[in-house]
Design a binder for these strands. Structure first.
Length: 548
DNA sequence: AAACCTTTGAAGACA
DNA sequence: TGTCTTCAAAGGTTT
């Protein structure tokens, strides 16, 4: 956890042009927040839940009538979005992560991988297990309090697969990614009309008996009847990671062949309300899915629902092609991890560039323990499973060419100098500290410290004390092996001393701010301080690509 | 505006 | 079978 830096702000700031924290004051403030926030984490979570429950206290029908069903194109939607954005920020201030990239998109309607609720409304053990995997930071309720809030009568909505989430919103993120917007605990948005402000979170809420229960105290019987105001915020079991355009789904839900197993896999807990009424936007079942994204949509994050949005393409064929639904690949374990952790990394430093963030995340990924990674592998496996069941005929091949093909010569033909020149700046700006962490190339390190390899602990938070040898280890900044020579050169350059470092000079392991590598610890801080002088004077001339 | 960058992993293509 | 390529997310940067 973050530690008060005890005057280390200067030290941290010394190299802030590389990986800089925000100004010291903000940094310290953030740390303070986190320190106290962690202490109150449970309170925060319970407050969020309680508040949501309070809002759910009314009967289902009442709720449905009184609270406009959120739609992407309605005012209520905007309000809800702001509301939960605020809630996320508050919770974030309560010790989670901050990110300016996730505005707290409220919609999160996820199909169940398997009907997770027992007849009595309680979460099934498997559902809980999965839920816990998806939400490691949350206490998964033993009772079914997570039913989709907007499913007044889940039963009648069978086979609907509501998956509505922010285009960049990961199902895991709602409670672990947060806007980085400055939040004033004392000034909740006016539209929130808070009845009661939670003293700790400042989140508006109304008193409710269930407050006595920490997290999801809804009685089983109430589950499924009471819309959960945080329904889109609450993880749904089996929720896929597929994003949708902010404007909602506009494309058919192509391959939702609901077989028997599918019917059981995709439960009925979904509401059509969030589905924009678009004549061409939905499958006949009315089921949208975030995995379905058309190129046109991706290019128009504002979500223009007008047909004109699809008429940009010049030729009819191309146009038609663009209209074709694009079922995205299921996210792999690392992608899931990235989505979850990106906001945290972004919050911990001023890094914004995804390329740099991803490098950090790659490091962290390898620093994860086997068990930690296993969670994501399992999650990814389930995602693939769900994906394959949602789209039986889908193949990754279908998406070939969906992206503008990367210039072939980018990898094959580009010279090392090209890469060096191209990547030098980003590395100098953001990566040097990170790059020094452990083995040189992250991708190389991945080979050495494969997810299943305990040696990953080399850079693990559990082993925060970088040895001197580690610090002195020459670190190649090769981020990706060259197609041809990579396999050999990279693997050797990473760990063996036989390969000359691509980095112009060795950089101490601890040059990277610990928070960027792994969860900050006192030891990290101490190490950082002790080695500050080293990286402070590092002339960072980094070669990010192998010269060969 | 679109591609690039960067990461890991899954899957497909190809030799 | 092994290797290579593409794509998945993301958003600042570059072209």
């Amino acid at each position: 956890m973050p530690q008060l830096n005890g005057g280390g702000g200067d030290d941290l700031g010394a190299n802030d042009e590389m990986i800089s924290f925000k100004d010291e004051g903000e940094q310290e403030e953030k740390i303070s927040e986190n320190v106290s926030a962690e202490r109150d984490l449970d309170d925060v979570k319970s407050s969020l839940v309680n508040e949501s429950e309070n809002n759910s206290s009314s009967s289902d029908s009442e709720q449905t009538e009184r609270r406009p069903q959120p739609r992407p194109d309605t005012e209520s939607y905007e309000k809800a979005r702001e509301y939960f954005s605020e809630a996320l920020r508050r919770q974030q201030d309560g010790g989670f992560f901050k990110s300016p990239h996730y505005p707290g998109y409220p919609f999160l309607m996820i199909p169940d991988l398997a009907s997770p609720y027992l007849s009595n409304g309680a979460l099934s053990p498997s559902a809980r297990t999965y839920l816990q995997m998806k939400w490691p930071l949350l206490d998964v309720p033993s009772s079914a309090a997570l039913k989709d809030s907007r499913s007044p009568t889940p039963g009648h909505l069978s086979n609907k697969v509501p998956v509505v989430q922010h285009a960049h919103m990961h199902p895991l993120t709602p409670l672990i990614t947060y806007s980085n917007d400055h939040f004033s605990p004392t000034t909740p948005p006016a539209h929130l009309s808070p009845e009661i402000l939670d003293p700790k979170t400042g989140i508006p809420r109304t008193p409710h008996p269930s407050e006595l229960s920490p997290y999801y105290p809804l009685s089983p019987g109430a589950v499924g009847q009471i819309p959960h105001p945080l329904g889109w915020l609450v993880p749904q079991q089996g929720q896929p990671m597929y994003s949708i355009p902010p404007g909602g789904f506009r494309h058919p839900y192509p391959a939702l062949a609901m077989n028997a197993s599918m019917s059981s896999l995709v439960s009925s807990r979904f509401s059509p309300h969030v589905v924009p009424h678009h004549p061409h936007g939905l499958h006949q079942t009315g089921i949208p899915h975030p995995a379905i994204v058309s190129p046109a949509i991706k290019q128009e994050p504002n979500g223009d629902l007008s047909p004109a949005a699809h008429t940009k393409s010049p030729g009819p064929a191309k146009k038609e092609d663009e209209k074709k639904p694009h079922i995205k690949k299921p996210l792999n374990a690392f992608m899931l991890y990235m989505k979850e952790m990106r906001a945290k990394v972004v919050a911990e430093c001023t890094l914004k560039e995804s390329a740099a963030i991803n490098q950090i995340l790659g490091r962290r990924w390898h620093s994860l323990s086997r068990e930690e990674q296993a969670k994501y592998y399992e999650l990814a496996r389930k995602e693939r499973q769900l994906h394959s069941q949602l789209y039986p005929g889908w193949s990754a091949r279908d998406n070939y060419g969906k992206r503008k093909k990367r210039k072939r010569d980018n990898k094959a033909d580009s010279t090392a100098e090209d890469f060096s020149a191209r990547n030098k700046k980003p590395c100098v700006q953001y990566l040097p500290q990170e790059k020094m962490i452990d083995s040189p190339a992250s991708s190389h390190g991945s080979m050495l410290d494969s997810p299943a390899t305990p040696s990953a602990a080399l850079a693990s938070p559990a082993a925060p004390a970088p040895t001197h040898s580690e610090q002195a280890q020459p670190l190649s900044l090769t981020t990706k092996p060259e197609p041809s020579s990579s396999s050999s050169s990279s693997s050797t350059s990473s760990s063996s001393s036989s390969t000359p470092p691509l980095l112009s000079r060795p950089i101490p392991f601890t040059s990277l701010h610990p928070s960027l590598l792994s969860p900050p610890s006192p030891f990290h801080q101490a190490a950082l301080h002790s080695h500050h002088a080293l990286f402070q004077s590092q002339p960072l001339s980094l070669v990010t690509k192998s010269a060969d």
